[in-house]
Design a protein around this nucleic acid. Structure first.
Lengths: 339, 339
DNA sequence: CTGTTAGCGCATTCAC
DNA sequence: GTGAATGCGCTAACAG
């Protein structure tokens, strides 16, 4: 463990060591031109030597800004927050902005608690990340800082929300299957209480209708798990052996379907095409064959959320409403045979 | 988006509204006894009404402490940081400590950059999270705040490092297989340049030797992937059909082995027991059968790291050296048939 | 070009 | 009990 005792060196330490006033030292370090080049160099050398790091809090007191953003999540265990966080970090980038990460664990009390903490710390803005695409309760309109909702939209249309476009994703998936020459397409998805499940189905239905096709069998809803994918896949392929493609509501479900297809001697993709959702690389790249999937571009979503927070902080741009974010298709071997 | 314009209300606002001085307001809100109960109540009511949140920066300026901790990770995409972060958050808990999350993306330059930022923000301590258990370069001994290394230890023994005990994990895994009556045990693992791979093997060898057994075939090293698990499993089972158990260096590898075992008509666990490593629930709980695995208790590791940072901050306790953290066995159907 | 002064928001003496 | 004064570390406006 490093030495936790030595007091942090302050600007006045540097000034004293350099034999100048505090304000001169400040100017030198902030590269103002109203200071002699020689003293500037000297002060900087001293600062370097003393490994001086300016106290951002003190600076923030003056500026009224802290250069911090709060990320309030209820999905620390899940996988959606991570890419969003990465995108946000990218956007904040070298902009000297740091992120406070708070995990509410899906608990409203804890969320309120963390919200107060973030406001106490005078974050310049807040990004709220949910774990489903269903609307969540708004933090309210009376906060002193801008708020952007990511993945899970706010239930208040006055808020800005960025959500992946699940309808477009469903459409994209089925259009791809049709483009691959498939016509007898079925759908297995997760919990129907999730708008994600319903929206993806809606998109799929649109694509089918546009092509003059009908879905084979009823869409099957239950859990977002491999187990369900296996069970549903087995039922479906037994009841409707003519099926030549299955659109799955998640990569986990798709993995289950791939698994059971092998048991039933259905060759993927020749005999049966399978497409997943989320493009969870751990699952999609390691299956046999690789799993074609829909990617929600979460990193880009996070980046955009950060940009919106920024815009609201220093500009006056005040967007509002739910903005569906584009998704993309990632093709692997489960829909097109690689040669 | 919420109103980003309304200036945050300050203590002087509250004082003015309550018709008292700033210092009295301060005392009232901090529950000091040298203030009349009536005024105390009044000030608090006003503060509540104005939704006053104290500016932690200003307070921190005085106190010399910020109540923040930096989490410097190089594993934002990976899975190790998340449970560690959760454990740390638990430990910090209601302690009014917040976490700055910085992702260095495995880049030393970026890490240095983030380190400076954290020091600028006067974090009270830093937790460094790596993505492998191999030693990483120390941040140095001259930092003004305590540092604890989690998962990846520091290469400087003067630092405190918490790493999962991979040797114990390897031993535990093989002891379990032996307890299940297995005697012809093989090993498939990942990249041998990882100390995790070597340590787990060492532990396994110990357990075998203690039981008077020898490993079947050579340990197989390559990647931490399902693909490798399938390939290695196929080779192994073909060359050594007598194998009755495989200890895998990761859950991904184990999933591959389970997959190929099914292809080769080996019944798990009756005919072949399989054990993984990491207890990645996504993989372990959804396989057929469920995957027995070694869990590194990362959440507890994170909690402990936070506790050590705390101890160093306000106590004088200054631990040092690499502390191996206990692991545990999670039994599922891949080693013991569930009835 | 440099130094002095003031003040960001708050907690803490110390007078009254 | 209460309030005026001081200072945390820093930057901005001025005066020299």
């Amino acid at each position: 463990m490093t030495d936790g005792t030595s007091r942090a060196v302050t600007l006045s330490d540097v000034a004293e060591a350099a034999g100048v006033s505090i304000s001169t030292a400040s100017k030198a370090l902030n590269d103002r031109n109203d200071v002699a080049a020689s003293t500037k160099a000297r002060v900087r050398a001293i600062a370097e030597q003393l490994s001086f790091t300016p106290n951002v809090m003190a600076r923030g007191l003056l500026a009224g800004r802290t250069g911090t953003v709060g990320l309030l999540t209820s999905d620390l265990e899940g996988r959606f927050m991570i890419p969003i966080l990465m995108g946000a970090e990218d956007a904040f980038g070298e902009g000297r902005v740091n992120v406070f990460l708070c995990d509410a664990r899906g608990d409203a009390i804890r969320e309120q608690h963390h919200l107060r903490e973030l406001l106490s710390r005078r974050v310049d803005g807040i990004i709220v990340v949910g774990r489903q695409t269903d609307p969540r309760r708004s933090l309210g309109q009376s906060l002193p800082v801008p708020v952007v909702y990511a993945y899970a939209p706010s239930d208040d249309p006055r808020d800005v929300s960025l959500t992946p476009d699940n309808v477009a994703g469903g459409r994209l998936a089925v259009e791809h299957l049709i483009a691959c020459g498939r016509t007898r397409i079925a759908h297995i998805s997760g919990d129907p209480s999730f708008s994600a499940a319903r929206d993806r189905l809606a998109g799929a239905q649109t694509a089918l209708a546009d092509a003059g096709l009908e879905m084979v069998g009823e869409p099957m809803f239950s859990e977002w798990t491999e187990h369900w994918g296996r069970d549903a896949g087995a039922m479906l392929l037994r009841q409707h052996p003519e099926i030549d493609a299955i659109f799955c509501g998640s990569d986990q479900i798709a993995r289950g379907v791939l698994d059971i297809a092998r048991d039933l001697d259905r060759i993927v993709p020749d005999d049966l095409a399978v497409i997943g959702y989320d493009n969870w690389e751990l699952l999609a790249e390691n299956s046999r064959p690789g799993l074609t999937s829909i990617d929600a571009n979460l990193q880009q979503l996070g980046r955009r959320a950060a940009e919106l927070v920024f815009a609201a902080i220093d500009g006056n741009e005040r967007a509002a409403g739910e903005q569906p974010m584009p998704v993309r298709l990632v093709i692997r071997g489960s829909t097109i045979a690689r040669r």
